[in-house]
Design a protein around this nucleic acid. Sequence first.
DNA 1: CTTGATAACTTAGCGACGCTAACCTACGAA
DNA 2: TTCGTAGGTTAGCGTCGCTAAGTTATCAAG
Lengths: 227, 227
Amino acid sequence: MTSRPKRTRARRGDGEQLRLEIINAVKDLIVEKGSVESVSIRAVAQRVGVTTPSIYLHFADKGALLDAVVTDVFAELDVAIMKAAADVADQSPLTVLRAQGLAYIRFAVDHAEHYRVAVMEPCIVPPDVDEVIREGAFAHFMTTVQACMDAGVFADGDPLPIALDLWTAAHGIAALMIAKPYLPWGSVDEVGDRALCAAALGHAAIGLIGTDPTPDAITDWLTAHRP
Amino acid sequence: MTSRPKRTRARRGDGEQLRLEIINAVKDLIVEKGSVESVSIRAVAQRVGVTTPSIYLHFADKGALLDAVVTDVFAELDVAIMKAAADVADQSPLTVLRAQGLAYIRFAVDHAEHYRVAVMEPCIVPPDVDEVIREGAFAHFMTTVQACMDAGVFADGDPLPIALDLWTAAHGIAALMIAKPYLPWGSVDEVGDRALCAAALGHAAIGLIGTDPTPDAITDWLTAHRP
DNA sequence: CTTGATAACTTAGCGACGCTAACCTACGAA
DNA sequence: TTCGTAGGTTAGCGTCGCTAAGTTATCAAG
C-alpha cells in the first residue's frame, strides 16, 4: 500500500472540499473492491492522502459517510433518467415512461454496487418523505406518470400509487439481475422492456376492468377480450 | 454478556448437530441485532456455548456460514409459499398464483432481515442454475405459472420468463417496502395484490396484443378496448 | 509585523472483529 | 488397555471503526 502524494492542507474555509473528495474516493473504492463492506475508512483516508481521523471531521461515522454517498448516487441516477427522457424522439408520455424505466434499470445494472448501497441497504436516518416525493428522481418519474394519466393511458386518479408500483417493477428487475446474475435473464433491455410493459399495461388494464381485480374478475375479463 | 451454560461435548459422529445449532443461532441473532453486519462470529459462538474457532470446524469462513443461512431461509420461504398455495379454497391457477405471490411478499416483510440476507446480498458461490429452476420455491412457483398457461390465463409458451418477471414484481415490492418503509405504501396485502395483479394481467394482456408491445401498440390497444 | 484564536489535520491507541496455529482431551474401535 | 482422531480449546496476529489529545498552518485583529 503506497500512500498518495501528500495533500497540501486546505485553506481556512475549504474544509468542505475534502468532504467531496472523500465521497468520490468511497465511490471509486466501492467499484474497485467490488463491495461496500470491503471499503474501510482507512483505505478511503489513504486514497485522499489524509490520515484516518480526518474523515471524522467531515462525517460523524461510517454510516453518515455512506448516507452521503447514497445521496450522491441518487442525484446521479436522477440525471441519467432525466437525460434518457429528454433524448427520446417521440415525446408521448408512455414512450417517455418507458425510456425512464429502462434508463433506471440500465443505471442500476451498470452501477450495480452503487445502486445496491443506495437502494438495498436500509438508510441510517430516514430522509424527509415529502422531499423524496417532491424532488429528485422519484418526483420526476411521477410527473411522467401524471402525464400518462392526462393522456388517458392510465385511469385518472392519484399518480403516487402507480408511480410506486412501477418503481417496484423496475427495482425488482434491477435488483434480481444484480443479485442473481447466474439466472437466465436475457439482455437487460429485453427483460426490462417486457416487465415494464407488463406492469404499465397491467395498471392500464386494471383501470379498464374498473372493479377490484379479483382473480375471477381478471379471468372473466381476459375471456371476454380474447380474440 | 453472560455466557451460556457449558455445552457437553458432542458424541463422535454428532459434529453435524453443532452445525445446525450455529445456523439457528445466526438467524436468531440477525433478528435480535436487526442486521447481518452486526452479528459477529464471536457472538454466535457464545450463543451456542462454544469458543470462536469451533465455528470454523463447520464453516470455512463467515461467508460460508451466511451461505448456509441463505439456504435455510430459502427452504423456509418455500414451505410458506407451498402452505399458502395449499390453503386457498378455490384452486384455480390464477388464485393459487396470487396466494403464492402474496405469501412471498408477506414472508419477506415479516422476516425482513432474513430475506435481505437471502435475496439482496450477492451469494459468495453461485448455486447450480438448473437446480434452482428444478427445485425449491422458484420451481414450485413456475409450476403454477405453467398451470395458468394450461388454463389459458397466459399465452402458451415458455413459463420461465413469465415466472422470472412475476418474481421480480414480487421482489420489487418486498424489497422496497423493506428498504424504504417511510414511503406511503399502504398495507402489505393491498400493495402486493395491486402490483401482482398488474404484473399478471399485464403479461396476459401482452399475450392478447400479440405483436411486440411497443408504446404505440399499447396505446392503440388500450384505445380500442376502452369501454 | 506580530499575535493569538482556531480550522485543519496528526499521533497514538482502545476494544472488537475475522481468522489461524498449535495444543488438548474424551470417545470408541482394536 | 491402547491410541488414532473427532471435537473441541488457548493464545494471538493483523485489521477494523472510532476517539482523546496533541500539533500546525491560516488569517483577522492590534
